[in-house]
Amino acid sequence: MRRILAVAEYIFKQNFRNKILNVLIIFAILSIGFSLLISELAKEVEIRMTKDFGLFSISIFAFLTLVLSLTIQLFEETELKTISMVIVKPITRAEFIIGKFFGIILTIFMNILFMFIILMVVIKIRGGDPWDLKLFLSVAGTFLSLSILTSVALFLSVITTSIPGCIIFLFFTYILGHLTVHLKNLQYKITNQLVYKIIDILYIMVPNLELFNLKDKIHTNFSLFTFDYILLIISYSIIYILIMLILTVIIFNKKEF
């Protein structure tokens, strides 16, 4: 356990000391500030737009945090070969992967938290209710989907041989993760059996990120903000993450450096 925490802490420190992530936070502040400007233009829906724009910015910047964190890690491990000095230590490869997972999601969590606090302040300034439970659950949904994507990113990092390849596949997963549910809904119109099967495979294999997309529904009466639904998406993310981490460890154990 101590070794897992050590890896997580090291990765978190490394990410947070890195100026790329600082720039990212500045961008997040600017984009949320920009939402103030937009809401000035549309008086009647200003709070609603502030919330929408803020939540959208949080989800995009959280994803970019993952991409940058992964790029930094992979660059140092593969190009600068830092991994060999770690792997020869008395740490199992499973401990290393789990530590890395927690290090990255801790970075994402802190970034989301920082951006969310700013959004709450902006909402308060615009006269809205920053303590709206739907708002909290929407951000929690974004964090859960990013945790899943982190596990996918680690898996991709051990099966691909190049950093750009890994990042491109991660972007595909992000896009497909939001699309598969829509494809599934359209499947009944498809007559080609091959395409039908491909959609089935994608639906099972690619994480269903739309499950966590609560931010688009905060102004609707969908019954997504219930205890049962939240429990469902938490269970889904835990199972998906576990499967991805187990597969990652199996492949990582066979890897040579």
Binding site: R3, A6, Q14, E76, M85, V88, P90
Partner: peptide, 27 residues
């Protein structure tokens, strides 16, 4: 103990923090 050729460490970390990390890996 092992030292790789031209070892690299993250430039924003302090020497103590790096050794602290490796000390934890050694438990």
């Amino acid at each position: 103990g092992y030292m790789s050729e031209l070892p690299y460490f993250p430039k924003y970390l302090k020497a103590y923090e790096i050794l602290d990390y490796f000390a934890d890996l050694f438990n």
